[in-house]
Structures are given as structure tokens and as C-alpha cells.
Computed example of a mutant assay.
Amino acid sequence: MALPAAVKIVEVGPRDGLQNEKDFVPTATKIELVNRLSAAGFPNVETTSFVSPKWVPQMADAADVMAGIERRPGTLYSVLTPNLRGLEGALAARADEIVIFGAASEAFSQKNINCSIAESIERFRPVTEAAKQQGLRIRGSLSCALGCPYQGDVPVSAVVDVVERFASIGCDEIDIADTIGVGTPKRTREVYEAVTRVFPRERLSGHFHDTYGQALANIYAALLEGITIFHASVAGLGGCPYAKGATGNVATEDVLYLMNGLGIDTGVDLNQVVAAGDFISTALGRQNASRAGKALLAKSRNEAACA
């Protein structure tokens, strides 16, 4: 299959990238990050989570973040909502899209939420029904689609099964997520070849972690299967709690550099994203995890010094 002319990049840094930070990130910093990403041209920014502060203290300021951001016309601002209470928060905050989570691995589902995959999906049914009544867009994120930290290999048939379950409760878009970053291009293509038989190709996305350095290769493999929606996290924010020391989310700057090199339009300004990555890395006091981001930033500073 020929490469697409354009793709949609979903920026997940503000939510997926920051949620596991041990030290609380100031609300103003989160708002500034979202505003910078919006200005860069992302069509979709995963902004925060309406979850219990007891379980995810980093997202305790979800309502304040949503109230403080400058909304860019045409940009979807997504929030994670695990239950009806979270949905109430999302509606009050005027979210454009809610995100629900399920797993392709029974072992992962039992270990993390003490129920089967089927039970976990059914728990979301009242949430999605209520969201549809309110006109909200719904995205389902399917974790451990390419491997599980507990059971290891995840059968392709299991991924297909959960995609069908997500579709049955009204998901408009479904993310195929390599949660622990063990996937390879061969398995990536096998999974997409199978799931595109049961769900529209244009409404499937790729969410790849870079634990084993395979994320960009897997994105390219997904492109070859006709996938045109990809998730990425500015400056590579976000770790992988199931693979100690791993980098986690693929860096947005690296993905944009790849797409630019392939001549694929994203509608996103790479230079602005590089600046946003530098901003949040400095704010967190950590090294920028994006290779392209660091290289382009160094190049820019060198050129400025020589001017």
C-alpha cells in the first residue's frame, strides 16, 4: 500500500506524558504546555484525566487545566474518563472527546483492574452511552496490543476481539497501543492487517512506546498498512511503568521529523514543537528524550551564536 499524503498526529504529552511524574507539575505549566502545542497546529491534544486524585494525583487539577487553556478552533481537546463521575467532569470542562481504556491481555486486565476484558468493556457501556447522548466523541485505547508484561505474547485474535467490543459500545476511534514497546514491524503489520477487517482503517490509530527502539519502525510499518493517525508525546514525555528505566512514549519531534522526511503532511510546525519540548524539559528539570528535538535545538542555538 502506498504511503498516505497526510496523517493526524495526536499529542498525548500533557496527559499520558505527565501523569506518572512523581512531583506535581504546576497547573500553569500544564496550561502553557497545552497552549504551545495547540499553537503548533495539532488537530488533537490529549489534555488531562478526570480520574480520582487518590490514584493519579498529577491529574487532580484537571478542571483548572481545562478552564485555563486557550482553545484553538479546529483542535480536539481529549480527556481520560474511566467512569460516569469522570464523564461529569469532562462535560463540565467542555471536553471535545473522552478516552476509555481496555487491554488485549487477560492477565493485564486481571492484574490491574481485577476483572476480565469483557467485564472491563461492559463497565464502560453506561459511560459511552451517556457520552453519545451529550454529543461527545469517544476514543477507545487498547493497551498491550503487541505484548504484555505479565503473559508475554498477545494473540492477534485477542486484539481483534477487543476492537470489536470497543466498536460495539460506540467508539469513534480506536488506538492500537504497544504499551510496553515490545512490538516489531512484522507483528505491527500482522495486527493492523487483522483489525482493519473488523473496523474502518481510517479510524484506527497507532500508539507506540519506544522501549526497544522500535517505535518509528513500527509507525512506518503501520503507514504501509494504511494507518493515518498516530500518537506521540512531546520531548518523549512519559515512562513505562512495566519496563523499568524505559523511555516510554515515542517523541513527537522524532515522529514529525520522520513524516517531514517522507513528504507526509501533518499540519504541525516542527520548530514550535521543538520549542515546546525544550520548555517542558526545562520545567521538569530533565533531559529532553527526543533525538530530533535535541539535534534541532542544538542546530538552532549554534546558528544563532554564529549569526
Rank of each mutant, 00 (worst) to 15 (best):
P4Q: 08
A5G: 11
A6P: 01
V10S: 05
V12S: 06
D16Q: 04
A28I: 02
T29S: 11
E32W: 11
L33K: 07
V34P: 07
S38I: 03
A40E: 03
S52C: 01
W55N: 06
M59P: 02
A60T: 01
A60V: 06
A62D: 08
A67H: 06
A67I: 05
L80Q: 05
R85I: 07
R85S: 10
A90E: 09
L91E: 10
E97A: 01
I98R: 14
F101Y: 15
G102D: 05
A104R: 02
S105E: 07
K111R: 15
N114E: 06
C115L: 10
E119Q: 15
S120G: 13
E122W: 00
R125K: 15
K132G: 14
L136N: 13
R137P: 01
S141T: 13
L142W: 04
C144F: 15
P149V: 14
C171I: 01
I174E: 00
D175P: 02
D178T: 12
T179E: 06
G181Y: 12
V182P: 04
V182I: 14
G183M: 05
K186T: 15
T188H: 00
E190Q: 15
E193K: 14
A194W: 10
V198D: 10
F199N: 02
P200D: 07
P200C: 08
E202H: 12
S205M: 09
S205G: 15
D210I: 07
A217I: 00
I219C: 12
E225W: 00
H231F: 01
K244G: 09
G245K: 08
T247G: 13
G248H: 11
N249T: 08
N249C: 10
T252R: 03
E253N: 03
D254L: 01
V255G: 06
G261H: 08
G261V: 08
G263R: 11
I264W: 00
L270G: 01
N271W: 06
G277M: 07
D278H: 13
I280Q: 08
I280G: 12
L284V: 06
L284W: 10
A289R: 14
R291K: 13
K294T: 09
A298M: 02
R301C: 04
R301L: 14
N302Q: 13
N302P: 00
C306T: 12
